[in-house]
Design a protein around this nucleic acid. Sequence first.
DNA 1: CAGCGTCTTTGCGCTGGCGCAAAGAAGAGG
DNA 2: CCTCTTCTTTGCGCCAGCGCAAAGACGCTG
Lengths: 244, 244
Amino acid sequence: MAYKPTDQELHSIRRATIFQGLTDAQLQIILQAARLVQVERHGFFFHQGEPASTFYVILQGNVRLAQLTPEGRQVIMHYFGPGSEIAVIVVLSKADYPVSAEAASDAAALGWDQQTVFSLMEQFPRLAINGLEMVAGRFWELQNRYRELATERVEQRVARAVVRLVQQGNGQNGRSTPPLLTLSRQDLAEMTGTTLFTVSRICSSWEQRGFVEAGREQLIIHQLDHIIAIADDLQPHAPTTAEP
Amino acid sequence: MAYKPTDQELHSIRRATIFQGLTDAQLQIILQAARLVQVERHGFFFHQGEPASTFYVILQGNVRLAQLTPEGRQVIMHYFGPGSEIAVIVVLSKADYPVSAEAASDAAALGWDQQTVFSLMEQFPRLAINGLEMVAGRFWELQNRYRELATERVEQRVARAVVRLVQQGNGQNGRSTPPLLTLSRQDLAEMTGTTLFTVSRICSSWEQRGFVEAGREQLIIHQLDHIIAIADDLQPHAPTTAEP
DNA sequence: CAGCGTCTTTGCGCTGGCGCAAAGAAGAGG
DNA sequence: CCTCTTCTTTGCGCCAGCGCAAAGACGCTG
């Protein structure tokens, strides 16, 4: 308990929607009640099906929220970075975690157990209000993604996923350096409901046109505006096979 | 205000998850605060983008919650019948309706505005608890549907949609008569992210094998167990084109 | 630096499902 | 009863994207 976050981490915490509108003093009290949880790459914060006991806010690293299909395929529901909240919804009810939370890189998070969350919410109603709004926001986003999956073609969905990741500030995102995402083609495929092959082809095509630079488990976005254009379908359709 | 529901309607209300665990007396008070809203076929309870002002519980008819894509395609997020709650999530925050609610048949519902909901929840905390659990439940279901859409093939998804509708008791579902759904192929297509043509072919195929009986804007399910088998992929894949 | 495991690329063939068009059915209304 | 509208079926052609296989590329470890 009572972990002292670094300045860098504090900055992440301040960005978290759940803590908006709280004074420094209030935030201090809340942080006192947290415990630090560290998970190394490929470790899990929790598994799908376990009773939801803890609410997390990420300090460092990326966390992949994924569901496993009965046939063993993975579907990534969310890909979160520092300052993101995990298990907001489920901790407010007495349900089980519907997904597994895997560290995509070495990760650290602050954790509050259900009991603590409830008592903090009583103490600081603003937390409860923020929580409800986050729930609505998450639901809204999932609905949009559902709609996209139902109606849009693969390239567009991949573009959307990339834009989302960049804009929510995943990966090193220095002011002057181009945004860099650290994830495998497989990850992107599982986020967009396609195969790693198709993602690979799309990335190659983008690279040939100079929009991105593709590397092993990373993607450097050089022309985000073009990717956004593809995401919004303002773009003539690109061939999946490379042109002569 | 103070609408007296019929016995039939009261039965629907009692089934609503949001009202579980309340005494008759408490329920009476809650019902007193409601107003009756009637909408005829193709009318709307509310439109996507309007500020979420009212929470509804359906008394009669079916209601289609749909999102419109920028290109004008519809995606049906939910298809609800009597006893279902609408806008649970959104009324707890101050967001806009993310979907439109259209009456698929002449429909009636009880409505409480946001203000009233909050004050009732204060009076009967059980309402708030039920509300939170419903939110978690809805989220859980949407996530599952998202996963299915990302991984399963069309026939399987259509089967799932049918099973879901039957089990949640949409459409006339007399004890001794086979379950009957009242929706168009187009509806089914928009619920499963496909086209009405493909749904039509699937229905024909099922009809030839005697699982269902297909009619204009209706579907009579004769062998639900077979449909369930398809939904759970325990079935050899069916050809979409009719066999010789 | 050689060997190994993991991740990525690319070619090739195939098919599930889309899209269109045209021709039925089934109600609704006059 | 006929007409009009809406919903459905079915044939046909086509293509986006899947699946596999084989060959790189990268990074780690001994």
